[in-house]
């Protein structure tokens, strides 16, 4: 577990609602939920998640910190905004879901095997290398995420699409060798570093 996480536990003790309020994007809205359930009833991911939004909010109030932050549920949000437009308390639920996911990730509590989480990490890793997303590498990394044989199977399955993209010039095979990037890669990495420092300082201030 990350040191930030330990610090947060220490700081907020049994007041997870306050922790969420202070640290999660739009988290101050969680307190306003009145448990009507219209969000979960409106969510297209209904059959898939373990905890619907209002249940996550209830768990936050019940101090179920571990369970909430390690949950896969908020990672499933597809940003359809159905919940948000229907919420009678106008909670920005979509944003809260992403905020929770982000916070969990930052604390190192996000479920490692959750596909969205995994993909997001891959996307990030891919992006930070050159400052541009290498779609070929990202795609292949995605296919081979669950092992070599799975990767082959997936690649074969996707072959017609790949061929189509190749022939219409939408995919450059040579990108596999590294691909293009932003002009000032050094500057780009410096910017990222600075951003990380700023973020750490901000979180540190909260801790």
């Amino acid at each position: 577990m990350s040191s930030v996480n330990t610090a947060m536990v220490e700081k907020y003790r049994n007041n997870f609602l306050k922790e969420v309020s202070d640290n999660v994007e739009e988290g101050e809205w969680v307190r306003m939920c009145m448990q009507c359930g219209v969000c979960s009833g409106s969510c297209p991911l209904g059959p898939h998640w373990e905890h619907p939004p209002q249940e996550l909010f209830m768990m936050i109030r019940a101090n179920k910190r571990e369970e909430v932050l390690s949950s896969t549920s908020m990672w499933m949000c597809t940003s359809c905004y159905n919940c948000m437009v229907r919420c009678p308390r106008e909670l920005p639920i979509t944003h809260i879901m992403h905020g929770l996911a982000h916070y969990a990730k930052r604390l190192g509590l996000a479920p490692k095997e959750q596909p969205t989480n995994k993909f997001s990490q891959m996307f990030w890793n891919n992006l930070v290398q050159t400052g541009r997303v290498n779609e070929l590498k990202l795609g292949l990394a995605l296919y081979f995420m669950n092992g070599f044989s799975e990767g082959i199977k997936m690649s074969m399955k996707m072959r017609p699409i790949g061929q189509g993209m190749f022939f219409t010039g939408r995919m450059a095979p040579m990108e596999i060798l590294g691909g293009h990037g932003v002009k000032d890669q050094k500057g780009f990495h410096a910017m990222l570093k600075k951003a990380e420092e700023l973020e750490a300082a901000r979180v540190g201030a909260h801790v």
Binding site: C36, S40, G46, P52
Partner: peptide
């Protein structure tokens, strides 16, 4: 009518 039955929350039953 579509929605979720909140009293099934946490019971392991399908709330929908």
């Amino acid at each position: 009518l579509n929605g979720n039955d909140l009293e099934k929350s946490g019971t392991g039953k399908d709330m929908r």
